[in-house]
Structure formats: structure tokens, C-alpha cells
Simulated scan of single mutants.
Amino acid sequence: MAPTVTVLDYGSGNLRSAVRALERVGAEVVLTSDRTTAEEADGLVVPGVGAYAACMVGLRAVRGPEIIGRRLAGGRPVLGICVGMQVLFERGVEHGVEAEGCGEWPGTVDRLEAPVLPHMGWNTVDAPEDSALFAGVRDERFYFVHSYGVRRFDLVSGERYRAPLVTWATHGQPFVAAVENGALSATQFHPEKSGDPGAELLRNWLKTLQ
């Protein structure tokens, strides 16, 4: 049986392309803002394009932070994409405007320091060897479109927990390209626009739903 995936519709993101990409790799996909459907699906995808603050307004309007939190409390997988990854961090700062995020991870999303912005196009990543998301595609290129990112990730392993797996990329300076943290995963790049490597990454994520 195909895994069920809800793409959360909160007015932001390349929703149809995300739906099509997930369907192509074998998921049964519903695009909706319905809370019950989002909470009960095997997997939840949180897309996002545009300004951090605007995305948080839209996300709160459909109770997105609550949906994400409830799923994670039950160990149910969530995948954030692009700004859908950024809003999982504590806060974002764009054009002097600071907005509170979902706070699932510590860290600030701010403007990259690079000679050319936005960072648009294909780029390599530095993924951990034990990454599940990047199994078979660690040496591939993925498609990025962004000017803001997370430049530090300070959550490290302790005696009682293991730190998330963090994948990095570089555009002017290193930034977080993906995070894997138990049921919560996210990518700064767009797997739905990343051709065969992106499709394989989505297949890898679907395997975690079983």
C-alpha cells in the first residue's frame, strides 16, 4: 500500500510541483490545510517560498505549528522544504524584520554573506555518511533558490540525546542544506526541482514512513 502524504496548504510554496514529485515516487498525496488529515497522514510535507514572516503568518492561520508539534510528539514524520525548513528554527530576520518561528531547532535564519544573491541553481552538499535522506545521492547536485539560511547549528550531542544529522552546502559561506532529526527532516533546496537526485531523496524519505 502506498504511503499517504499530506502537503500542507497554507498559501505558500510550489504546492503542485511538490504534489506531483511525491506522486511520481509512489506516495498517495493530498493537498490540504485540514488539521485532521495533516495529523493522520503517514507523512506531512511543509513547503514554503517567500518571506519568513509571511510564511509564519500563513502557517499560524492553519495551526501549522500545532500540527507539526502534535505529529512530532507522536513520532510521525514531517519534511520541511525551503522556507518550510527555515520556519522550523527559532526565528528569522529579513530586511530588519524579526519573526518567531516554530522553534523545533535552535538557530536564526538570516541573509547569507555571498557575492551574488539569491543563491540560485545547482549545488553540491556535504552530507553525513550515515544520512538516510541522502543514501545513494550524497555526491549529487540539488537545486537551490534562496538568499537566507541558517549559518550556525549549535545543537550538539549530549549524554541523553543524539544531535541531529546536519548536511551543509556553501555559497559564499557554509549554510545548513538539510537536517535529519528523528521524525523531523528538512531541506533548504527543492527536491521536487532537483531531477533524479531529488526524486531519490524523496523516495528515501518515503521509506521512513513505513
Rank of each mutant, 00 (worst) to 15 (best):
A132S: 12
V45L: 15
V83T: 03
G96E: 12
E98P: 04
D139Y: 14
G13A: 10
L112K: 10
R162S: 14
A99V: 02
M85H: 09
G26P: 01
A18T: 15
S12Y: 10
G13K: 05
L72C: 00
T167F: 13
L79T: 00
L184Q: 06
E90D: 13
M1A: 13
E98T: 15
A61P: 06
P118L: 07
A38V: 06
A183K: 01
V57E: 14
A51F: 11
V166C: 01
R203W: 12
V57K: 14
G107R: 09
D196S: 11
L72D: 06
N181G: 04
G103R: 02
C102D: 00
Q188V: 12
F175C: 06
Y52I: 01
P164E: 06
N181V: 01
V5M: 04
Y10S: 07
V5Y: 04
R60G: 02
T208S: 15
A114N: 08
R160T: 15
V7K: 07
T32V: 11
G43V: 10
V30W: 00
P128M: 12
S157E: 09
S12H: 14
T36P: 02
Q188F: 14
V46G: 05
M56N: 03
V97M: 11
V5T: 04
G103W: 08
F144N: 07
G107L: 10
P3K: 09
P191C: 08
A163R: 13
V29H: 01
A183S: 07
V30D: 00
V150C: 06
V62S: 03
H190S: 07
L133G: 08
S147Y: 13
L165F: 06
L88D: 01
E98D: 04
R35E: 15
L117A: 02
A53Y: 12
E66I: 12
S131Q: 11
N204Y: 13
S12P: 04
G64K: 09
L117V: 03
L209N: 01
C55T: 03
D154C: 12
D9S: 02
N181H: 14
G80T: 04
V45E: 00
G69N: 03
P77D: 03
A178Y: 07
L88R: 06
E94M: 12
A163C: 09
H190K: 05
T208V: 05
V25R: 02
G48E: 11
L112I: 10
A178G: 09
A73N: 01
V97N: 08
V97L: 14
A199K: 09
G69P: 03
C55E: 07
V179A: 02
A135H: 14
P3A: 10
A114Q: 07
L8V: 05
H190F: 13
T124F: 13
G198I: 08
W205G: 05
V49P: 01
M85D: 03
E39G: 04
E159H: 09
G182R: 02
V87L: 09
L201S: 05
A38G: 00
T167D: 08
W105L: 12
Y10R: 02
E113K: 15
A127Y: 11
K207N: 11
V150A: 03
A38K: 08
S157A: 14
G96M: 12
